[in-house]
Design a binder for these strands. Structure first.
Length: 207
DNA sequence: GCTCCGATTATCT
DNA sequence: GATAATCGGAGCG
């Protein structure tokens, strides 16, 4: 399968190149599939906003391993978020999957996301995306090349004209780095507030 | 559409 | 002991 060789190549490259390239890709786990519409890059231990910023811990160990593995963590006492590790082994970079559009398995996704009013809300936000796909710490460390979770790139990258970028969401540190990428105008892109109540905004996705 | 606020617990200091 | 790469509901427009 030539597609998966290309995926390996993309994920092994610089995280700021990989992130926009993953827009439009389809993430599948069992019967539910999500087309990614919003991602965020976390660029190694030198990125103050990254979980890797304060070195390796049991939780973030996967980030320090080879690219192509899922880093799934639990936060706010109730939510999971999923990333894919990028860059050469030891780089500790990753792309967070922030939102997507459910393209298969709507029934399962709906059953797991009863609060979703519309289909566009099923995977609109990193916690929601994990819930729709039923991803949790059990998938931490899963290799996309050899596991139950798959990621399929688009044959052709999305036109850069169709991609927007802006500040990251929900971080205390270095949120202002414009490392969030999304498909301009897509209904499933999250539109959440920044972490700081008083801080500069500009992170809203265009509607 | 928007803003505010509480929930709930693994993880790290 | 404090924090967190969030979410959903309430109240307002």
């Amino acid at each position: 399968m030539p597609g998966s060789a290309e995926l390996v190549e993309v994920l092994a490259g610089p995280v700021l190149d990989a992130a926009p390239r993953l827009l439009g890709a389809v993430l599948r786990y069992a019967d539910v599939a999500v087309r990614l519409t919003e991602v965020e890059a976390y660029d190694g231990p030198g990125d103050p906003g990254s979980h890797a910023a304060r070195g390796r811990t049991p939780r973030n160990a996967v980030m320090f391993g080879p690219p192509g593995r899922l880093y799934v963590y639990f936060t706010y006492g109730m939510h999971h978020c999923v990333n894919v590790v990028c860059g050469p082994e030891g780089t500790a970079s990753a792309v967070l999957f922030r939102a997507g559009e459910v393209v298969d398995g709507h029934e399962s996704a709906r059953a797991r996301r009863p609060a979703a009013r519309r289909d566009r809300d099923l995977a609109r936000g990193p916690g929601r995306l994990c819930q729709a796909l039923a991803l949790d710490r059990g998938q931490d460390g899963t290799d996309l090349a050899d596991g139950p979770v798959t990621l399929t790139l688009l044959a052709e990258p999305v036109d850069t004209q169709a991609i927007s970028r802006g500040p990251r969401v929900g971080l205390r540190h270095a949120a202002q780095r414009p490392w969030r990428f999304w498909l301009t105008g897509d209904a499933s892109v999250s539109s959440y507030r920044p972490a700081s109540r008083s801080g500069v905004d500009g992170s809203r996705a265009p509607r």
